[in-house]
Lab assay of single mutants.
Amino acid sequence: MKVTIEENEETGKFTIKVKTEDGEEKTIEIPKENLEEILAKLPPNVEII
């Protein structure tokens, strides 16, 4: 699983794009305050880009 994290400076939010092993892609946008909480919940086999 690969996770790409991009900061949107205009909105102050982060866009998180997840690509699973089977090629499925999902995108979510979260507030900056929630980034550490989300990262802590990721499984250890995740590659963060």
Rank of each mutant, 00 (worst) to 15 (best):
N34A: 14
P44L: 09
T4A: 04
V46F: 08
G12I: 01
N45P: 05
N8S: 07
E29F: 08
L39F: 04
E37M: 09
T20N: 08
N34W: 15
I38F: 15
I30N: 00
K19W: 15
G12E: 04
I16A: 00
K41D: 06
M1D: 03
T15W: 06
N34C: 15
V3A: 03
N45Y: 11
K32T: 05
P43M: 10
N34H: 14
E7M: 13
I5W: 04
M1C: 14
K41L: 13
E10K: 11
E25I: 13
F14C: 15
I5A: 01
N45D: 10
F14L: 15
E29Q: 07
K2E: 05
E7S: 06
T27P: 00
L39M: 06
N45S: 07
E29W: 07
I16D: 11
L42E: 00
K41N: 11
I5E: 01
K26M: 14
E47K: 10
E25T: 10
I16L: 04
E25Q: 05
E37S: 08
E37C: 12
T27A: 05
F14N: 14
P44R: 09
N45M: 06
L35T: 00
E9V: 14
K13T: 11
T15A: 04
F14E: 13
N8F: 02
N34P: 01
E24Y: 12
K32L: 09
E6P: 00
T20P: 03
E47D: 06
E9P: 13
K13A: 08
K13L: 08
G12K: 03
A40P: 02
K32H: 07
K32C: 12
V46D: 02
P31S: 15
I16H: 00
P31G: 10
T20G: 10
V3W: 05
K32D: 03
K32E: 03
T11P: 02
M1T: 09
E47L: 12
P31W: 13
L35A: 02
A40D: 04
E10I: 11
K19L: 14
E7I: 14
E33I: 05
K32S: 08
I48L: 06
P44T: 08
E36V: 09
P43E: 05
E33H: 08
L39D: 00
V18L: 11
E9N: 10
A40W: 02
N8C: 07
K41G: 11
E10F: 13
I48H: 03
L42I: 04
E36T: 08
I5R: 00
E37F: 07
D22C: 12
E33W: 10
E37D: 09
P31M: 12
E21N: 09
K19V: 15
L35P: 00
E47A: 07
K26A: 08
P43A: 08
G12Y: 02
N45L: 06
T4C: 14
I28A: 03
K19A: 08
K26I: 15
T20K: 04
A40K: 11
E6H: 09
D22R: 05
L35Y: 04
I5N: 01
K2T: 13
E29M: 08
T15H: 07
K17L: 11
K17Q: 07
K41W: 11
E21R: 09
L35I: 06
I49N: 05
K26Q: 11
I16N: 00
I30F: 09
L35K: 01
A40Y: 01
P31T: 14
I5C: 07
L39T: 00
T11I: 02
T15F: 06
E6W: 14
